[in-house]
Nucleic acid binder design. Structure first.
Ligand SMILES: [Mn+2]
Ligand SMILES: [Mn+2]
Ligand SMILES: [Mn+2]
Ligand SMILES: [Mn+2]
Lengths: 220, 220
DNA sequence: ATATATTTTTAGGTTAGTCTAAATTTTTTA
DNA sequence: TAAAAAATTTAGACTAACCTAAAAATATAT
């Protein structure tokens, strides 16, 4: 039987909140992420548990079962492929595609996904640097650093973002910080941890700790 | 306020059943087309009337209001543009795209539709020969003939289909009858109105009245 | 023109997904 | 470790979209 939009969204969110080590996700965290109330979450959890998509013991939080994980990864695959389409083919900015992909990700049809994937040239990453699961459901999260972990005078490559909010992405656009940019940390301010960074050997700019915390980078 | 998938489907179907001259559509016809029961249709009609999308007087059938017509045409525009995308860009057959477009047509976002339209090169017709409404909502139905109206020895161009069923479209594929094909009527059988037609000056084949009734053509 | 058949609406229910308020369980604090 | 706080679940309701069965309106046929 088919899963509803709502069920798919829950599974995707549980996957995200559960993290790499599959830690239990709380009812309140889900209520927050789904913009619903805790009571509504409890109802949905009972249903997902009945369908065998999550492990759920009252008051103990939830994790995905293997079959729930499979569904979540399929949705993530579709979400990220559609984002690539919107940016690469239709010319949207990386700050504009999230909400649209949030709808497109629920269009059913295996063959649609696979044809889309081929049309896009089997991309490995979405416009925000997030890895795209392959057709078999393998999703390997690269081991990126957060910019706050980088020392003064180190040069790193910008690989992704943790915050996907349009306002953050637009801020990066204005600063010239795009995927693949070379970031050299020139100075870190002891007081507030703000940093002075040079982008692509060009302009130097100040970024707040808030920004540094949301930038995924990689040593070269 | 936003219209639901269900409401959009009703409006689209009312538009189709209402035809060019905007004739009243009956509750039963809608029940048939939506695969629901008449009682369910009545419920929905009351709601659509309250929203000002249809003209509805009990027992008298319904027609679209101007605002309902606008919504219907937007949905049709999206449906047909997505079908072009699926066929032209993703390589689907014209017999495979209807159900997927039936979902994609409900994705909201004006800008998405306009960017998709531009990406596709502002197509005027969908893969079944149906006209695509423009961004302003203008939809002009071309004046095609049905193949049954064509006399023996006339040559016509294949312009579209009335039946969109996969089985019918696959049958046309096997017969080599594609959009743009030249069809010359060689002979019409008096008894069952089946016909002998030559396709693109090449092979001659027999087609039943059932097929002829569903082929839209144009004199050259 | 009246009786019969058909169509449509109303009445009363169901399910999915949501809500608020109250009860219960778990966690934290003193 | 008992009391207070926080998190979670339960109880009871709501809306959208559907259903069946019965009633009412319209159309058809004698
Ligand atoms: Mn979603
Ligand atoms: Mn993304
Ligand atoms: Mn539809
Ligand atoms: Mn079509």
């Amino acid at each position: 039987m088919q899963n509803s939009f709502t069920e798919e969204n829950y599974l995707k969110i549980i996957h995200a909140l559960s993290g790499r080590d599959g830690v239990e996700v709380s009812t309140n965290a889900l209520a927050e992420s789904t913009s619903t109330r805790a009571a509504s979450v409890t109802d949905m959890l009972r249903k997902l548990a009945e369908k065998g998509l999550i492990h759920y013991k009252k008051y103990q939080g939830v994790t995905l079962t293997e079959s729930g994980e499979k569904v979540a990864i399929k949705v993530i695959r579709k979400h990220r492929l559609w984002e690539v389409f919107l940016v690469e083919k239709l010319g949207f900015g990386w700050d504009e595609v999230h909400d649209i992909a949030e709808e497109l990700e629920h269009i059913p049809s295996e063959v649609l996904v696979e044809k889309l994937d081929a049309f896009l040239g089997h991309p490995k990453f979405d416009p925000h640097g997030d890895p795209i699961p392959d057709a078999k459901g393998n999703l390997t999260e690269p081991d990126y650093l957060i910019l706050t972990d980088v020392q003064v005078s180190e040069k790193v490559l910008m690989m992704g973002v943790l915050d996907h909010a349009p306002s953050f992405l637009q801020h990066l656009d204005r600063s010239g910080i795009t995927l693949g940019a070379v970031i050299e940390v020139k100075e870190i301010n002891e007081y507030d941890k703000s940093a002075s960074v040079q982008i692509n050997g060009g302009p130097t700019l100040f970024i707040s700790l808030e920004v540094s915390k949301n930038l995924l980078v990689q040593r070269r």
